Simulated scan of single mutants.
Amino acid sequence: MRNLEFLKSLCEAHAPSGRENWLYPIIKDGFKEFGDISISQLNNIYVHKMGNSQSKIMIMAHSDEVFLMVTYISKRGFIKFKTLGIDAKSLVNQQVVIHGKEDINGIIALKPNLKQQNKIKLENLYIDTGKDFDIINSLVNIGDYITLDKKMIELLNENVSCKAIDNRSSIAAMRVCAEELENVTPDLNVYFVCSCQEEVGHRGAGMASYDIKPDIGIAIDVTFDGGLMGDTDRENILSKGPVICVGPNVHPRVRERITEIAKKYNIPYQIEVEPGNTGTDAWDIQTSVGGIPTLLISIPIKYMHTSVEVVNLEDIRNTGILLARFIQELKTSELEGLFCF
């Protein structure tokens, strides 16, 4: 399976927090050549590649996406909803899928109200499916999931756009890493983890850490692009490589080591400073099982938590290659010294 095809299948699929099992067939198909695959009771997906020692390294990317939930069905068949992680302004005129007793297509419309024309608020949005109340009420329950519906498009300069680039791009980077290690037996056992429920509090990260008990944990996630139309307080740029995080959530010696690997193999990289909570799986990995030396590697994207997130394919590839070279050179015998401050 080619990596662009894999990324496309991941992003166009639907797997909100708590329903990551919907993504399992795609993950299983994409990673079946690279290790033993299993899924936990709460939807963490594990791919285990055997190493030469008892030591373990865990590479993690969350598989859930931001979503909506049904809260009310009007007598005219319109659906009201709550959101998780999505700004109401980005929802107007979007296509969605309501995951009821069967999948139902819908569009999000803005309630006409001249007094509110410059104030797009959640309470003024509703989903129109074209069906009347009796049909919708028979197929949809309060609490059913709703996800954005978008097909991937290719842009210029190796950029692509879709929904759920956060964080399916990182799963694609893990697959690049697994591909690079296919004919290599590393010293450490490698666990690739597609974690559950990151968007609602990094829950899968802690679960996986206790399941695996790794010597090193590396979270891969996305971060805000700092270019034109991005977060200008940051210096992350699409196509300039993976972003290595610096801060208390990251083990300094392990971070120095992966930076040295990037320089050794001429892999482009960027640096991002996070003085507090990184808001990623790395936060929960670090404090699990008595403390795990942790790294955070991020892929810059544009328009986060919208249906048109944008990522650069070379950033995905370079993230995977960097992780593979780091794993390939890491030896169990050096871990104790590496963890000393």
Rank of each mutant, 00 (worst) to 15 (best):
D149F: 13
D149Y: 14
D149C: 08
D149L: 12
K150H: 12
K150A: 13
M152F: 09
M152D: 06
M152A: 10
L155E: 14
L155M: 15
L155R: 12
L156P: 13
L156R: 15
E158P: 07
E158L: 14
E158G: 06
V160L: 00
V160S: 02
S161C: 13
C162S: 08
I165P: 02
D166L: 10
D166W: 07
S169Y: 01
S169R: 00
S170W: 07
S170I: 12
I171Y: 05
I171T: 12
A172H: 05
A172I: 00
A173F: 12
M174W: 12
M174I: 12
M174N: 13
V176H: 08
V176G: 08
V176R: 06
V176L: 11
V176A: 09
C177Q: 05
E179L: 10
E180W: 00
E180C: 05
E180V: 04
E180Q: 09
E180M: 08
E180Y: 04
L181G: 05
E182P: 07
E182K: 15
E182G: 07
V184T: 13
V184L: 10
V184I: 15
T185A: 09
T185Q: 13
P186H: 03
D187Q: 03
L188A: 03
N189Y: 03
V190L: 10
V190K: 05
V190I: 12
Y191F: 15
Y191T: 13
Y191W: 15
Y191K: 14
C194D: 13
C194G: 15
C196H: 12
C196T: 14
E198A: 00
E198T: 02
E199G: 03
E199A: 01
E199F: 09
V200G: 07
V200R: 01
V200H: 07
G201S: 10
G204S: 04
A205W: 00
A205G: 00
M207H: 06
S209E: 01
S209A: 14
S209L: 07
Y210E: 09
Y210W: 06
D211P: 01
D211Y: 04
D211W: 02
D211R: 04
I212T: 07
I212A: 02
I212Y: 03
K213Y: 07
K213A: 06
K213F: 00
P214H: 01
P214T: 01
D215N: 11
D215F: 05
I216Y: 03
I216D: 03
G217I: 09
A219F: 04
A219V: 04
I220R: 11
